[in-house]
């Protein structure tokens, strides 16, 4: 029986691990498929306090992981396939093992969202990508497009100019959602141009099995336009990874875990931190901050548990 199990190993999960390890709770972290979280797919992180020259995303995550382990957190490779939060103690299953715990910290984060076009799905890995740092290399000297208007889209567009001959940013509005500093970087880059008010209608050519162009629809004029590209990078935001918890803890209509009074979920003893419960800030530092909160909330909750009682009798 574990005091604390943490599902997820991004900034939220690893900070929760650090704090709960230092509180002597011997946390178990199940790192998940996308171990290290979204920062593993970024390059230079310039807004994490304490790193004035920036730090590479994967390096920052390696540091966080080492720090959590240094204080006794146990981090295992594995992917949680189901949880049972309706009976105490809580049960967490991976494909290899089954664990039980008094408190659970949900730090499963969010994963890149796709546009939802059949042609996009068919060409994934053949020109359609959600990871510029992984796949930019394949587009040396080629024209490509980035779909989206947020910080991630601008970061990807700027990064991809290292490889691509030209980057077209396709955005469905006429203004960017990205922060001023990221907008300025993208707007000032000579290799980047913009298609405003543009919805992606189709990505071609599924017959050939590779990307040759994309069809855009101007959502004001309904005009169609085809632009030749060899790659399409989709950066339109994220979907919270909450499937595991459906029907067991409260979520908002978009699938984000609802938290109250800190990181508490609707189920006593279950806490949530990071992007899985935050569609507003979504920063590494806010995720880390809420991971800290979840660990402290879990610790408080454990202190209130009558240790001599059987788990089944505990009501919070």
């Amino acid at each position: 029986m574990r005091n604390v199990i943490i599902i997820g190993s991004g900034p939220a999960g690893l900070t929760a691990a650090l704090y709960s390890a230092r509180a002597n709770l011997k946390p178990l972290v199940i790192e998940g498929l996308e171990a290290g979280g979204q920062l593993m797919l970024t390059t230079l992180v310039e807004n994490f306090p304490g790193h004035r020259d920036g730090i590479m995303g994967p390096e920052l995550m390696a540091e966080m992981r080492a720090q959590a382990e240094h204080f006794g957190a146990e981090i295992i490779r594995g992917h949680v396939t189901s949880v049972d939060l309706l009976a105490r103690p809580y049960t967490v299953k991976t494909s290899e093992a089954e664990y039980q715990c008094r408190t659970l910290i949900v730090a499963t984060g969010a994963s890149a969202r796709l546009l939802g076009l059949p042609s996009e799905r068919a060409l994934l890995g053949h020109g359609v990508s959600t990871c510029a740092t992984c796949d930019g290399y394949f587009f040396r000297g080629k024209p490509i497009a980035v779909v989206g208007g947020g910080d991630s889209a601008m970061e990807e567009a700027v990064f991809l100019t290292r490889f691509a001959s030209h980057v077209t940013v396709v955005h469905r509005r006429d203004t960017l959602r990205a922060s001023k500093i990221m907008q300025d970087k993208a707007l000032a880059n000579e290799k980047i141009s913009f298609e405003w008010n543009a919805d992606v209608e189709e990505i071609r050519d599924t017959g050939k099995g590779e990307v040759t162009s994309m069809v855009l629809r101007n959502n004001r004029t309904n005009e169609l336009k085809e632009i030749p590209v060899d790659g399409v990078f989709v950066a339109i935001g994220h979907t919270p990874n909450t499937k595991l918890f459906q029907g067991q803890i409260d979520m908002d209509p978009n699938g984000y875990v609802v938290t109250h009074a800190g990181t508490r979920t609707s189920m006593p003893g279950v806490f949530a931190c990071g992007d899985v419960q935050d569609h507003v800030y979504r920063q590494a530092i806010t995720a880390a901050g809420s991971g800290c909160m979840a660990a402290i909330d879990a610790e408080k909750y454990l202190e209130g548990l009558p240790q001599h009682l059987g788990e089944a009798q505990v009501t919070a």
Binding site: G125, G127, F138
Partner: peptide
């Protein structure tokens, strides 16, 4: 094999 993304 038109691999434009990894891992595949």
């Amino acid at each position: 094999f038109s691999i434009r993304g990894i891992p595949t």
